[in-house]
């Protein structure tokens, strides 16, 4: 990969870390479109907790960290790296299928 490309991808990654790790703390805490409709139209109570709702990162916080800013920021950064790992795995797999198809 060229130096220019490396720098471009690094900026892209840094922007994502900044958004998930720092800016996320300032996000609106109002319900999103779907949750608001469910609330207004009276079917919000039909929601069930996910089977994973007790997991250590549930609801974008790190279990055991009291400080909200740190908790949400850290969960965001963890999410960025896990997403990167899974996504690069999936796209590497897709690319390998390409090689298999053209041979």
């Amino acid at each position: 990969m060229s130096k220019v490309s490396k720098r471009f991808y690094l900026y892209f990654l840094m922007a994502s870390i900044l958004i998930a790790g720092v800016l996320s703390f300032y996000a609106s805490s109002s319900p999103d479109g779907l949750e608001k409709v469910a609330e207004d139209k009276g079917f919000l109570e039909t929601a069930k907790d996910s089977a994973l709702s007790e997991s250590p990162l549930s609801d974008y916080g790190v279990a055991g960290i009291e400080d909200d800013r740190l908790s949400v920021g850290l969960s965001g950064v963890i999410g960025v790296f896990v997403t990167a790992l899974v996504a690069f795995g999936v796209f590497a797999l897709a690319k390998r299928m390409n090689r298999g198809a053209t041979n």
């Binding site: 892209f12 990654l13 958004i19 998930a20 609106s28 960025v80 997403t83 690069f88 590497a92 690319k95």
Partner: peptide, 20 residues
């Protein structure tokens, strides 16, 4: 391929920003 992976990463991050 790297852009595809980073697009997923950026979307994960950007979805954390709820705007009023």
């Amino acid at each position: 391929t790297p852009l595809a992976g980073l697009t997923a990463v950026f979307i994960f991050a950007a979805q954390m920003i709820n705007f009023p």
